[in-house]
Amino acid sequence: MASGSADAPRPAGRVRAAGLWAAAFLLFALALLAGRYPNPGFLDLRLLASDDLARTILLSVRLPRVLAAALLGAVLAASGNAFQMVFSNPLVEPGFLGVSQGAAFGAALALVLGFRHDLAVSGSAFVFALAGLGASAALARRFRFGGWVLRLVLAGIAVSAFFSSALAWVKYAADPLRELPDIAYWTLGGLSGIGWKRLAVVAPIALASLAALRAAGWRLSILSLEDSASFSLGARPGRERALVLAAAVAGVASMTAVSGIVSWAGLIVPHAARLLVGADGRRSMPASIALGAAFLMACDALSRSLLPGELPLGVTTAFLGTAGFTALLLGRVVTVVR
């Protein structure tokens, strides 16, 4: 993997961390004003005094949506950082362990079975996301091969593949005109259906997940060490990692239930955060939260503003994420880890 310049002083990291939070708040304001009413671009604040529709759009449509985007990005990035540290592997992300594929299958199943209400689709996605995690953990316990991390990785791959296959069957059975487009849209992600009511259902779980992951910031540094090293420092690696994963997955599953599958943010935002402020969990976790929130607010604002029709959020995150990450890497002095 790559790292920042070898002698980057900590004060620079602090300035960057403050910059990330400032960027997040600025993007929050810009995302609230961005849209296509009354014209494509930013809403003129003076309209709020005279235009009821503008006020309604701002407070009832955009505000919950921007908050949901911020929460989604924060949860995905914080969970991604936690997953990467817990597994000592910078290539894992929150959808790992069957969570994303389980959620996608759950949503598709609800749609095909005729439970088309938002809460039914979200609820089914949530249940199957947790089922994916549970199946991965149960399989890993029964495997008699390799260490804990390797077993969990293999179990996650197996469970993800199983749900991918099951999703393909559901798609095959779906009505191509009515159900298939909904399934396709859900698996590409989006926040168009979010409102205060749905946000209120998932936000407490997501916020609790974020609070737990933030509190565990430094502990994650300890857990990122090899098992015997973290054990020698007084940790219970297996139990503590399970707790962290449970907190992360609960947050991801709750937000995925309303957003669909949003890829890339959980994988690359933590990398970017570590490049900017360093690897220590005390700094990388809050930075991941701020950067994730900023990134998803920007992606969502672009998704709903660029075209008359809405772009799937997952497409925007993949496009902007890879572009931004590549630029960040190209602009840094990197050292190669032995």
């Binding site: 900590r10 540094s221 060490l225 690897a279 005390r282």
Partner: peptide, 26 residues
């Protein structure tokens, strides 16, 4: 010991204080 992340040396050594701190303390 394989180290996967680019901790600064001081941060890495500081982890030795973990046994003296509560699980979520810094």
């Amino acid at each position: 010991e394989r180290v996967s992340f680019t901790y600064e040396v001081l941060e890495f050594v500081l982890m030795g204080r973990a046994p003296h701190l509560a699980p979520l303390a810094e």
